[in-house]
């Protein structure tokens, strides 16, 4: 078996929606960086179009979106469908915020890989991303 040289995991983080609560996403950005990932943080109030276009430009492995305003049903669905439309099939979407359980079920059906809610540990988020990417890379065997 040829040994694949692994590139660093690239993560795009953004706040969607109008709320300015960036405490969580900044902590996650720091934790992912400390775990050896490359983090691109877009900042506050990014539209679905801006997020998906940035993901294309930056060639990221995953997109993490934080949203605490209550607009998650509208915005996560939009991001997920734009990702499909623009062919971002090798990139997955995960999210975080104050999101009720039944909405999480609905959003997962629409293509959101995972949603983290208050109390989630940064370690768990790191493990989730690493696990999901390892799974994808082993099935794709895309050499870097």
């Amino acid at each position: 078996m040829p040994k694949l040289e692994k590139r660093k995991i690239r993560v795009l983080l953004a706040k969607a929606g109008l709320d300015g609560h960036d405490r969580g996403i900044k902590i996650i950005a720091m934790a992912l960086r400390d775990a050896g990932m490359e983090v691109i943080y877009l900042g506050l109030r990014r539209t679905p179009e801006e997020i998906v276009n940035a993901a294309l430009d930056e060639d990221v492995d995953c997109i993490g979106v934080s949203l605490l305003s209550g607009a998650h049903n509208v915005l996560f669905s939009k991001i997920a469908s734009l990702m499909k439309k623009k062919g971002l099939t090798n990139t997955f979407l995960f999210g975080g915020g104050i999101i009720p359980e039944d909405d999480i079920v609905r959003l997962k059906k629409k293509g959101v890989a995972e949603i983290f809610t208050p109390g989630a540990e940064t370690e768990a988020i790191v493990r989730f991303i690493e696990g999901a990417i390892a799974k994808r890379r082993s099935t794709r065997e895309r050499p870097f």
């Binding site: 109008l18 305003s69 607009a71 998650h72 509208v74 915005l75």
Partner: peptide, 10 residues
Amino acid sequence: PLAEGEVGRC
């Protein structure tokens, strides 16, 4: 347009 999904929520 940016208010979509946000009206009356918070």
